[in-house]
Amino acid sequence: MLLKNSYLVFKKDLSSELRTRYVINSLLMFVLVIISIIRFAIGDEKVDNEILTGLLWIAIFFTSVSGLSRTFVKEEEKETSFSLKLSTGSNSVILGKLFFNLILTFSLNLLILFLFVIITDYEIKNFSGFMIVIVFGNLGLVSASTIIAAIISKANSKGTLYPVLSFPVLLPLLITVINATKLASVGVETGKLLGEIQILLSYFIVVTVASLMLFKYVWED
């Protein structure tokens, strides 16, 4: 029942997004802008993998903080949150939104990564390990961003507040994931990254459980 309802919320978001393309279009442009900034900032220099990994995560972080808040802010702005409240429980709302944001972030990250590898000579020596780290990093990134997006949607000055609120919460994740992607890109075996992956996974679980427990307080009026 819960899963079915969350799937419905997810489908509703997806179809409304595909219809209006509000988030997708502006996010695609955002990705292009940030990638070209990186391109012009480094020019033709040969840059270390360490710095490139940092730049990659700057692109990912700012793309997600500029896009992920939309799912909840949209409901408040278009005043559809009330009917959503009537039609389904809070848990299915947060799960559905979480799933939607996950799909959004995964596809955006693939795009960012693709463009990033093209414009810089970013060499990924352990590709499978790199992708595993990116996937687990995204899980945590999305789980924390989604609950904070829910908080933000009820406050004023949402745009500036979102990075301010999400940064300290995301920092443990970012530090770990940047470190792990750096290691994977220079060719450390996946087995040696297990500690980092464990931290990323437990971050995701802890934050998701906390969001499930707390979301009902944010959602109700």
């Binding site: 406050a155 920092l171 437990s202 802890v206 934050v207 707390l214 944010v218």
Partner: peptide, 16 residues
């Protein structure tokens, strides 16, 4: 309500 939720979310990530 919202600041309570935020402080709890922040507190569960700090031990990491």
């Amino acid at each position: 309500k919202l600041s309570s939720v935020y402080s709890i979310i922040a507190a569960v990530t700090v031990p990491f």
